[in-house]
Amino acid sequence: MKKADKIAYDKDYAAAKKDGKPFFPYAIYKDTIIAGLAILAVIVLAITVRVNIGEPVNPATTDFVPRPEWYFYFAFELLKIFKNQNALTPVIMATFMVPNILIILLVIWPFIDRGPERRIWKRPFGLALAVIVTGMLCYLTYIGASTPEGVAKGDGIPVSGLEGASAAGAALFLANGCTSCHMVKGVGAAGPGPDLTNFGAKGWDNAKMIKWLQAPIAPMPSYASLPPKDLDDLATFVNGLGTKYK
């Protein structure tokens, strides 16, 4: 804003204030009403939609849904968009580039849009940006909210041909929460990890899989703390998915 604009604004604001009303009670009564209504709404929701509690961490069950709070759905959806693509649009885009660009834009916005104009219809660029970003966030949140959870209720993984090591691997697959990020034949969450139903087609050997499990690419957690036998069983199971175990 130019100096003259600032002076003009200060003068205009002083005039507005001179014609104004005292904060108490004219503003405070509105504040109290809306804040009261908000708190009332929270109390009503707390009574009508009771909080529940899920399964305790880490028993060998499959009927849990790994979901963040709804206001992080967009981040998880971003992850799915940028995953499963070529190496040029890696997870870094979703986990780092996009969120940070948004955050930086948010913080420095007043230093970008410095013109004296305050009426929204005379700020088309700002309006367009706001509509696009808000629309995108709402859309991703909606997708996140409506993604089928796809978690079967405790029936295990519906593939045939499991025995010995691969059966143990399937149990470990459930027990270690792989299904919270990977889907196998409709069991497990649709993301953020890729669907592993036909993973066997990739033809990894167990050593490669064990190495991956010990040091995967984030956000997949490392399973280096599992005993070697468990890792081997898991590898047998995952490497045969879609080929040996369908």
Binding site: I53, G54, E55, P56, V57, N58, P59, T61, F64, V65, P66, R67, P68, E69, F72, A75, F76, L79, V91, I92, T95, F96, G177, S180, C181, P192, I217, A218, P219, M220, P221
Partner: peptide
């Protein structure tokens, strides 16, 4: 979210923290 310490919260938080950890 993590404090409830149930499966859903736990795994969601694992993912979220790994997202932070994946930043360069």
């Amino acid at each position: 979210y993590l404090l409830v310490w149930d499966q859903k919260a736990y795994w969601a938080t694992v993912v979220a923290v790994n997202i932070f950890a994946a930043a360069p």
